[in-house]
Design a protein around this nucleic acid. Sequence first.
DNA 1: AGCTACTCCTGGTAGC
DNA 2: TGCTACCAGGAGTAGC
Length: 281
Amino acid sequence: MPELPEVETVCRLIRPKLVGRTLGVSRVHWQRSLGGLSVRRFSKHVRDARVRRVRRRGKYIVAELEREGSFAGAILVHLRMSGRLHVDPAACDRGPHLRVSVDLDDGKRLNFLDVRKFGRFTFCDDPLEVLRALGPEPLGSEFTPLWLRDQLRSRKRILKPLLLDQSFLAGLGNIYVDEALHAARLHPLQRSNEVSARKSNALREAIRGTLLEAIEREGSSFDTFYRTPEGQPGSYQHQFQVYGRNGRPCRTCGRKISRIVVGQRGTHLCSRCQRSYPPRS
DNA sequence: AGCTACTCCTGGTAGC
DNA sequence: TGCTACCAGGAGTAGC
Protein backbone atom coordinates (compact mmCIF):
# COMPACT_ATOMS: atom_id res chain seq x y z
CA MET A 1 0.00 0.00 0.00
CA PRO A 2 1.45 3.33 -0.84
CA GLU A 3 2.79 4.95 2.32
CA LEU A 4 5.20 7.83 2.75
CA PRO A 5 8.16 6.25 0.88
CA GLU A 6 6.02 5.18 -2.07
CA VAL A 7 4.27 8.54 -2.28
CA GLU A 8 7.60 10.34 -2.06
CA THR A 9 8.94 8.19 -4.90
CA VAL A 10 5.92 8.90 -7.07
CA CYS A 11 6.25 12.59 -6.31
CA ARG A 12 9.92 12.71 -7.27
CA LEU A 13 9.31 10.90 -10.54
CA ILE A 14 6.31 12.87 -11.77
CA ARG A 15 7.49 16.30 -10.57
CA PRO A 16 9.79 17.06 -13.53
CA LYS A 17 7.05 15.94 -15.93
CA LEU A 18 4.40 18.20 -14.43
CA VAL A 19 5.97 21.41 -13.19
CA GLY A 20 5.50 24.17 -15.76
CA ARG A 21 2.89 22.23 -17.75
CA THR A 22 -0.45 23.82 -18.53
CA LEU A 23 -3.46 21.56 -18.07
CA GLY A 24 -6.10 20.92 -20.70
CA VAL A 25 -9.19 18.77 -21.01
CA SER A 26 -9.93 16.20 -18.31
CA ARG A 27 -11.78 12.91 -18.55
CA VAL A 28 -13.40 11.37 -15.52
CA HIS A 29 -14.21 7.68 -15.75
CA TRP A 30 -15.09 7.15 -12.09
CA GLN A 31 -16.69 10.16 -10.53
CA ARG A 32 -16.15 9.14 -6.92
CA SER A 33 -12.41 9.51 -7.44
CA LEU A 34 -13.18 13.25 -7.33
CA GLY A 35 -14.35 12.87 -3.73
CA GLY A 36 -17.69 14.64 -4.06
CA LEU A 37 -16.64 17.32 -6.52
CA SER A 38 -18.70 17.42 -9.72
CA VAL A 39 -17.02 16.58 -13.02
CA ARG A 40 -17.99 20.00 -14.34
CA ARG A 41 -16.40 21.88 -11.45
CA PHE A 42 -13.27 19.75 -11.48
CA SER A 43 -12.76 20.28 -15.20
CA LYS A 44 -13.34 24.00 -14.92
CA HIS A 45 -10.90 24.48 -12.04
CA VAL A 46 -8.17 22.52 -13.73
CA ARG A 47 -8.45 23.64 -17.33
CA ASP A 48 -5.79 26.14 -18.49
CA ALA A 49 -4.14 26.23 -15.07
CA ARG A 50 -0.37 25.84 -14.89
CA VAL A 51 1.39 23.47 -12.48
CA ARG A 52 3.53 25.60 -10.20
CA ARG A 53 4.89 22.99 -7.82
CA VAL A 54 4.47 19.31 -6.91
CA ARG A 55 5.00 18.31 -3.32
CA ARG A 56 4.16 15.62 -0.79
CA ARG A 57 2.49 16.04 2.59
CA GLY A 58 1.92 12.83 4.51
CA LYS A 59 0.49 10.44 1.96
CA TYR A 60 -0.94 13.23 -0.18
CA ILE A 61 0.51 14.46 -3.45
CA VAL A 62 -0.20 18.15 -3.94
CA ALA A 63 0.08 19.71 -7.39
CA GLU A 64 -0.23 23.45 -6.84
CA LEU A 65 -1.78 25.40 -9.70
CA GLU A 66 -1.52 28.99 -10.82
CA ARG A 67 -3.25 31.33 -13.24
CA GLU A 68 -1.43 34.40 -14.48
CA GLY A 69 1.14 33.86 -11.78
CA SER A 70 -1.32 33.70 -8.86
CA PHE A 71 -2.09 30.64 -6.77
CA ALA A 72 -5.19 28.90 -8.10
CA GLY A 73 -5.78 25.89 -5.86
CA ALA A 74 -4.31 22.43 -6.16
CA ILE A 75 -4.89 18.94 -7.43
CA LEU A 76 -4.88 16.76 -4.33
CA VAL A 77 -4.10 13.09 -4.83
CA HIS A 78 -4.36 10.26 -2.29
CA LEU A 79 -3.40 6.84 -3.62
CA ARG A 80 -4.98 4.90 -0.72
CA MET A 81 -4.69 1.19 -1.47
CA SER A 82 -4.10 0.85 -5.17
CA GLY A 83 -3.85 4.28 -6.78
CA ARG A 84 -1.16 5.08 -9.33
CA LEU A 85 -0.09 8.22 -11.15
CA HIS A 86 1.51 8.20 -14.57
CA VAL A 87 2.43 10.76 -17.17
CA ASP A 88 1.92 8.99 -20.49
CA PRO A 89 1.75 9.81 -24.18
CA ALA A 90 -1.84 10.77 -25.04
CA ALA A 91 -2.21 7.68 -27.21
CA CYS A 92 -1.31 5.30 -24.39
CA ASP A 93 -4.25 3.10 -23.38
CA ARG A 94 -4.14 2.52 -19.64
CA GLY A 95 -7.03 0.06 -19.64
CA PRO A 96 -10.07 -0.42 -17.42
CA HIS A 97 -8.64 0.95 -14.18
CA LEU A 98 -8.09 4.46 -15.49
CA ARG A 99 -10.25 6.74 -13.32
CA VAL A 100 -9.24 10.29 -14.23
CA SER A 101 -6.96 11.76 -16.86
CA VAL A 102 -5.90 15.32 -17.63
CA ASP A 103 -4.29 16.49 -20.88
CA LEU A 104 -0.97 18.33 -20.68
CA ASP A 105 0.29 20.96 -23.11
CA ASP A 106 3.22 18.79 -24.23
CA GLY A 107 1.02 16.14 -25.82
CA LYS A 108 1.10 13.92 -22.77
CA ARG A 109 -1.49 13.06 -20.19
CA LEU A 110 -1.59 12.80 -16.41
CA ASN A 111 -3.36 9.52 -15.67
CA PHE A 112 -4.81 8.39 -12.35
CA LEU A 113 -5.37 4.65 -12.15
CA ASP A 114 -6.97 2.87 -9.23
CA VAL A 115 -8.04 -0.76 -9.19
CA ARG A 116 -9.88 -0.64 -5.86
CA LYS A 117 -11.35 2.83 -6.27
CA PHE A 118 -10.43 3.96 -2.74
CA GLY A 119 -8.04 6.63 -3.99
CA ARG A 120 -8.82 10.28 -4.57
CA PHE A 121 -7.80 12.62 -7.37
CA THR A 122 -9.51 15.91 -6.83
CA PHE A 123 -9.25 19.67 -6.90
CA CYS A 124 -9.09 21.81 -3.79
CA ASP A 125 -9.26 25.63 -3.60
CA ASP A 126 -7.36 25.59 -0.34
CA PRO A 127 -5.39 22.37 0.18
CA LEU A 128 -4.38 23.55 3.66
CA GLU A 129 -7.96 22.93 4.73
CA VAL A 130 -7.26 19.23 4.32
CA LEU A 131 -3.55 19.16 5.08
CA ARG A 132 -3.63 21.03 8.37
CA ALA A 133 -5.44 18.09 9.95
CA LEU A 134 -2.25 16.07 9.54
CA GLY A 135 0.37 15.56 12.22
CA PRO A 136 4.02 16.43 11.64
CA GLU A 137 6.22 14.91 8.95
CA PRO A 138 8.31 12.08 10.41
CA LEU A 139 11.30 13.29 8.37
CA GLY A 140 10.70 16.95 9.18
CA SER A 141 12.14 19.24 11.84
CA GLU A 142 9.02 19.20 14.05
CA PHE A 143 9.40 15.50 14.78
CA THR A 144 11.93 15.94 17.55
CA PRO A 145 12.75 13.48 20.36
CA LEU A 146 11.13 15.85 22.84
CA TRP A 147 7.97 16.20 20.78
CA LEU A 148 7.53 12.43 20.52
CA ARG A 149 8.20 11.87 24.22
CA ASP A 150 5.64 14.51 25.21
CA GLN A 151 3.02 13.29 22.77
CA LEU A 152 3.36 9.66 23.82
CA ARG A 153 3.21 10.57 27.48
CA SER A 154 0.17 12.81 27.17
CA ARG A 155 -1.99 10.08 25.62
CA LYS A 156 -2.99 6.61 26.69
CA ARG A 157 -3.32 5.02 23.32
CA ILE A 158 -2.16 1.70 21.95
CA LEU A 159 0.97 2.33 19.90
CA LYS A 160 -0.03 0.73 16.61
CA PRO A 161 -3.32 2.60 16.03
CA LEU A 162 -1.68 5.78 17.32
CA LEU A 163 1.12 5.57 14.76
CA LEU A 164 -1.41 4.83 12.01
CA ASP A 165 -3.38 7.94 12.97
CA GLN A 166 -2.48 10.57 10.36
CA SER A 167 -3.48 13.41 12.66
CA PHE A 168 -0.80 12.22 15.10
CA LEU A 169 2.02 11.63 12.61
CA ALA A 170 1.63 11.90 8.84
CA GLY A 171 2.71 9.24 6.39
CA LEU A 172 2.98 5.93 8.19
CA GLY A 173 0.80 2.99 7.16
CA ASN A 174 0.46 -0.63 8.16
CA ILE A 175 3.77 -1.81 6.71
CA TYR A 176 6.12 0.83 8.07
CA VAL A 177 4.47 0.91 11.49
CA ASP A 178 5.07 -2.84 11.89
CA GLU A 179 8.65 -2.47 10.65
CA ALA A 180 9.41 0.54 12.86
CA LEU A 181 7.95 -1.08 15.98
CA HIS A 182 10.08 -4.15 15.37
CA ALA A 183 13.19 -2.04 14.83
CA ALA A 184 12.47 -0.20 18.09
CA ARG A 185 11.69 -3.51 19.85
CA LEU A 186 8.30 -2.20 20.96
CA HIS A 187 5.13 -4.29 21.14
CA PRO A 188 2.27 -2.93 18.99
CA LEU A 189 -0.16 -3.21 21.92
CA GLN A 190 2.03 -1.16 24.27
CA ARG A 191 0.32 1.93 25.69
CA SER A 192 1.88 5.19 24.56
CA ASN A 193 2.12 6.61 28.10
CA GLU A 194 4.04 3.50 29.20
CA VAL A 195 6.85 4.00 26.69
CA SER A 196 10.08 5.08 28.40
CA ALA A 197 12.08 8.08 27.19
CA ARG A 198 14.77 5.73 25.95
CA LYS A 199 12.23 3.66 24.00
CA SER A 200 10.62 6.79 22.64
CA ASN A 201 13.95 7.85 21.20
CA ALA A 202 14.47 4.38 19.77
CA LEU A 203 11.05 4.58 18.14
CA ARG A 204 11.84 7.93 16.57
CA GLU A 205 15.12 6.61 15.18
CA ALA A 206 13.35 3.47 13.92
CA ILE A 207 10.63 5.42 12.14
CA ARG A 208 13.07 7.78 10.45
CA GLY A 209 15.58 5.07 9.59
CA THR A 210 12.93 2.78 8.13
CA LEU A 211 11.38 5.54 6.02
CA LEU A 212 14.72 6.87 4.76
CA GLU A 213 15.92 3.44 3.72
CA ALA A 214 12.59 2.67 2.02
CA ILE A 215 12.75 5.95 0.08
CA GLU A 216 16.27 5.07 -1.01
CA ARG A 217 14.90 1.80 -2.39
CA GLU A 218 11.92 3.51 -4.03
CA GLY A 219 9.38 1.95 -1.69
CA SER A 220 7.93 -1.56 -1.50
CA SER A 221 6.10 -3.48 -4.20
CA PHE A 222 4.12 -6.70 -3.97
CA ASP A 223 0.74 -8.17 -4.85
CA THR A 224 1.08 -6.59 -8.34
CA PHE A 225 0.18 -3.28 -6.70
CA TYR A 226 2.48 -0.35 -6.17
CA ARG A 227 4.85 0.51 -9.00
CA THR A 228 6.88 3.64 -9.54
CA PRO A 229 5.53 5.87 -12.31
CA GLU A 230 8.35 4.45 -14.44
CA GLY A 231 6.69 1.06 -14.05
CA GLN A 232 9.53 -0.27 -11.90
CA PRO A 233 8.82 -2.04 -8.63
CA GLY A 234 10.44 -0.65 -5.49
CA SER A 235 12.74 -3.02 -3.65
CA TYR A 236 12.19 -2.34 0.03
CA GLN A 237 9.95 -5.41 0.36
CA HIS A 238 13.15 -7.48 0.42
CA GLN A 239 14.15 -5.68 3.63
CA PHE A 240 10.95 -6.48 5.53
CA GLN A 241 11.72 -7.87 8.98
CA VAL A 242 8.14 -8.66 10.01
CA TYR A 243 5.51 -7.42 7.54
CA GLY A 244 4.04 -10.34 5.59
CA ARG A 245 6.53 -12.75 7.21
CA ASN A 246 4.01 -14.59 9.38
CA GLY A 247 5.42 -17.99 10.43
CA ARG A 248 8.90 -17.29 9.09
CA PRO A 249 11.91 -16.83 11.37
CA CYS A 250 12.75 -13.43 12.80
CA ARG A 251 15.93 -12.22 11.14
CA THR A 252 17.19 -11.00 14.50
CA CYS A 253 16.48 -13.91 16.83
CA GLY A 254 14.98 -16.77 14.82
CA ARG A 255 11.63 -16.88 16.63
CA LYS A 256 8.66 -17.34 14.33
CA ILE A 257 7.01 -14.06 13.34
CA SER A 258 3.42 -13.93 14.57
CA ARG A 259 0.40 -12.17 13.15
CA ILE A 260 -2.25 -10.64 15.37
CA VAL A 261 -5.08 -8.23 14.66
CA VAL A 262 -4.93 -4.77 16.22
CA GLY A 263 -7.71 -2.32 15.45
CA GLN A 264 -8.86 -4.44 12.48
CA ARG A 265 -5.35 -4.34 10.99
CA GLY A 266 -3.11 -7.29 10.36
CA THR A 267 -0.10 -6.77 12.62
CA HIS A 268 3.19 -8.60 12.42
CA LEU A 269 5.68 -8.93 15.24
CA CYS A 270 8.39 -11.00 16.83
CA SER A 271 7.21 -11.98 20.28
CA ARG A 272 10.78 -12.35 21.52
CA CYS A 273 12.20 -9.08 20.18
CA GLN A 274 9.06 -7.08 21.00
CA ARG A 275 8.07 -8.27 24.42
CA SER A 276 7.33 -5.08 26.29
CA TYR A 277 3.63 -6.03 26.29
CA PRO A 278 1.98 -7.42 28.31
CA PRO A 279 4.06 -6.13 31.20
CA ARG A 280 5.94 -8.93 32.95
CA SER A 281 4.86 -9.48 36.52
C1' DA B 1 -10.63 10.43 25.35
C1' DG B 2 -10.30 6.27 23.07
C1' DC B 3 -12.24 2.34 21.30
C1' DT B 4 -15.08 -0.75 17.90
C1' DA B 5 -17.75 -1.50 13.87
C1' DC B 6 -18.95 -0.32 9.46
C1' DT B 7 -18.32 1.54 4.74
C1' DC B 8 -16.11 1.97 0.39
C1' DC B 9 -14.04 -1.63 -3.57
C1' DT B 10 -11.66 -5.31 -6.34
C1' DG B 11 -8.54 -9.11 -7.42
C1' DG B 12 -6.80 -13.07 -5.56
C1' DT B 13 -7.38 -17.30 -3.47
C1' DA B 14 -9.15 -21.05 -0.42
C1' DG B 15 -12.47 -24.52 -0.30
C1' DC B 16 -15.54 -27.44 -2.42
C1' DT C 1 -13.02 -26.44 -14.28
C1' DG C 2 -16.09 -23.40 -12.09
C1' DC C 3 -18.47 -21.77 -8.49
C1' DT C 4 -19.01 -19.15 -3.93
C1' DA C 5 -17.20 -16.97 0.10
C1' DC C 6 -13.99 -14.43 2.16
C1' DC C 7 -9.99 -11.43 2.77
C1' DA C 8 -6.82 -7.14 2.77
C1' DG C 9 -6.79 -2.45 3.98
C1' DG C 10 -6.55 3.85 4.56
C1' DA C 11 -9.52 6.82 6.18
C1' DG C 12 -13.94 8.74 7.40
C1' DT C 13 -17.84 8.33 10.29
C1' DA C 14 -21.18 6.83 13.79
C1' DG C 15 -21.94 5.19 18.20
C1' DC C 16 -20.65 3.68 22.82
